[in-house]
Measured scan of single mutants.
Amino acid sequence: HTVDVQGVTYHFDNPEEARKFAEEMAKRLGLQVHVKDGRYKVE
């Protein structure tokens, strides 16, 4: 499970961890979480 944050890619084994990380980063950076091709993108 992959999370892209402003061009940096993070990998997680656990989909729940990936989702939480994406939401946390989006909140911290004031950005949105998009799901695209099964990847989380924070932009």
Rank of each mutant, 00 (worst) to 15 (best):
V3F: 01
G30Y: 04
V33D: 00
G7D: 07
Q6A: 08
R28A: 11
Y40K: 03
L29G: 02
G7A: 05
V42H: 02
P15R: 13
A26N: 01
E16N: 11
M25S: 08
E23Q: 11
V5D: 01
Q6T: 09
A18Y: 00
G38N: 07
R39E: 15
M25K: 06
P15Q: 14
V42C: 05
E16Y: 11
K41M: 15
F12N: 00
H1M: 12
H11Q: 11
H34F: 14
E23M: 14
T9M: 13
E24L: 14
K20I: 12
V35Y: 15
V35N: 05
A18E: 00
H11M: 13
F12I: 02
M25P: 00
E23V: 13
G38P: 02
K41Y: 15
D4R: 06
N14Q: 10
G30T: 04
E17L: 10
E43R: 06
T2Q: 13
Q32K: 14
L29S: 03
Y10G: 00
F12R: 01
E24D: 12
Y40H: 04
V5W: 03
K36P: 01
N14Y: 10
R28P: 02
V8G: 05
R39D: 15
R19I: 06
F12L: 04
V42D: 03
Y10H: 06
R28H: 07
R39I: 15
K41G: 05
T2G: 07
R39K: 15
D13T: 12
K20N: 12
V42W: 02
T9Q: 09
A22P: 00
K41A: 10
V3H: 00
V3T: 03
D13Y: 09
E43L: 07
G38Q: 04
D4L: 08
E24V: 10
K36Y: 07
A18L: 02
H1K: 09
L31E: 02
A18R: 02
A22D: 00
A22Q: 00
G30D: 05
V3C: 06
D13W: 09
V3G: 00
K41V: 15
E17T: 12
E24M: 14
P15K: 13
K41T: 15
H1F: 12
G38A: 03
A26H: 01
E17V: 09
V33L: 06
V5R: 01
A22G: 03
R28K: 12
P15F: 06
A26C: 04
K20C: 15
Y10E: 01
L29W: 06
R39V: 15
F21M: 04
H11L: 12
H34Q: 10
V35F: 15
H11N: 11
A26V: 01
K27F: 13
E23S: 08
Y40D: 03
G30F: 05
G30E: 04
R28W: 07
G7Q: 05
Y40W: 13
V42S: 02
M25L: 06
E43N: 07
L29K: 03
R39M: 15
L29V: 02
D4V: 07
H1L: 08
D13R: 09
K36F: 07
E24R: 11
V33A: 04
E16H: 11
R39P: 02
K41W: 15
K27E: 10
A26K: 01
L29R: 03
V5G: 03
K27I: 09
K27Y: 10
E23Y: 15
V35T: 06
N14V: 09
F21I: 02
D37I: 02
T2C: 09
H34S: 14
F21R: 01
D4T: 07
V42R: 01
R19V: 06
Y10W: 09
F12C: 07
V8H: 10
D37C: 15
K36V: 15
E23N: 11
R28T: 08
L31F: 08
E23P: 00
D13H: 10
L31Y: 07
V5N: 02
V8C: 14
M25W: 13
Q32C: 14
V33F: 06
K27A: 13
K36R: 10
H34E: 07
K41Q: 14
V33S: 03
A26S: 04
D4P: 01
Y40R: 03
Y10R: 04
D4E: 14
F12A: 01
M25N: 06
E23I: 14
R39Y: 14
K20S: 12
N14M: 10
E23L: 13
E16K: 09
Q32S: 13
E16T: 11
K36I: 15
P15N: 15
Q6V: 14
H1A: 13
Q6K: 09
H11V: 13
R39C: 15
A18C: 08
H11F: 13
A18S: 05
H34A: 08
F12G: 00
Q6N: 08
K41C: 15
H1E: 06
H1D: 07
Y40E: 03
L29M: 07
G38I: 02
D37T: 03
F21G: 01
P15G: 14
A22L: 01
E17H: 10
F12K: 02
A18W: 01
A22H: 00
D13I: 10
G7T: 05
E23C: 15
V42Y: 02
P15I: 08
V33N: 02
R19C: 10
E17D: 12
G38E: 04
K27L: 11
H34D: 05
T9D: 05
A26R: 02
A22W: 00
T2R: 09
L29F: 07
A26M: 02
G7C: 14
Q6I: 14
R28N: 07
E24Y: 14
V35L: 13
P15L: 08
D13V: 11
N14T: 13
Q32Y: 10
Q32A: 13
M25H: 06
V5C: 13
F21E: 01
Y40I: 10
L31V: 06
G38K: 05
L31P: 00
K36C: 13
E24K: 11
V8D: 07
V35I: 12
G30I: 03
A22K: 00
E43W: 08
E43Q: 07
D13L: 10
V35W: 15
V5M: 05
P15D: 15
F12Y: 05
L31G: 07
E23T: 11
Y40Q: 03
K20W: 10
V5K: 01
E24Q: 11
D13A: 11
H1S: 12
G7R: 05
N14A: 11
T9F: 12
K27N: 08
R39L: 12
L31T: 04
D4F: 08
D4S: 07
A26Y: 01
F21S: 01
L29H: 05
F12Q: 00
H11C: 14
R19N: 04
R19T: 05
K36N: 08
K41I: 15
M25D: 01
A18M: 03
R19S: 06
V8F: 12
V5I: 07
V33P: 02
Q32I: 13
E23W: 15
K27S: 10
G38V: 02
G7N: 07
A22M: 01
K41E: 14
L29D: 02
Q6P: 03
G38S: 04
L31C: 08
R39T: 13
V5H: 04
K27V: 09
E16L: 11
V3E: 00
V33T: 03
G7P: 01
E16P: 05
N14P: 02
E17G: 09
H1P: 10
E43P: 03
A26F: 02
E43G: 14
L29A: 03
T9A: 09
M25I: 10
R28E: 08
R39F: 10
A26T: 02
L31S: 04
H34V: 14
H1Q: 09
V35D: 05
G7E: 05
E16F: 11
L29N: 03
K20L: 13
E16M: 10
Q6R: 09
L31I: 04
K20E: 12
K36Q: 13
V8P: 00
G30M: 05
R28G: 05
D37W: 03
G38Y: 03
V8I: 12
A26P: 00
K41L: 15
E17Q: 11
H34I: 14
V8K: 13
G30R: 06
G7K: 05
K20M: 13
E17P: 05
R39Q: 15
M25T: 11
E23K: 07
F12D: 00
G38R: 05
V5Q: 01
K36G: 06
G7H: 06
G7I: 02
N14L: 10
T2A: 14
K27P: 01
T2F: 15
G7F: 05
Y10D: 00
D37S: 04
K36A: 10
Q6C: 15
P15H: 12
T2Y: 15
K27M: 13
K41H: 15
Y10T: 04
T2P: 14
A18F: 01
Y10C: 06
E16S: 11
R28I: 11
V5E: 00
D37K: 05
K36M: 12
L29Y: 07
A22S: 04
M25F: 07
E24S: 11
D13K: 10
T2W: 15
R28Y: 08
E43V: 08
A26I: 01
H34G: 05
V33G: 01
V35H: 08
F12V: 02
G38C: 14
V33W: 09
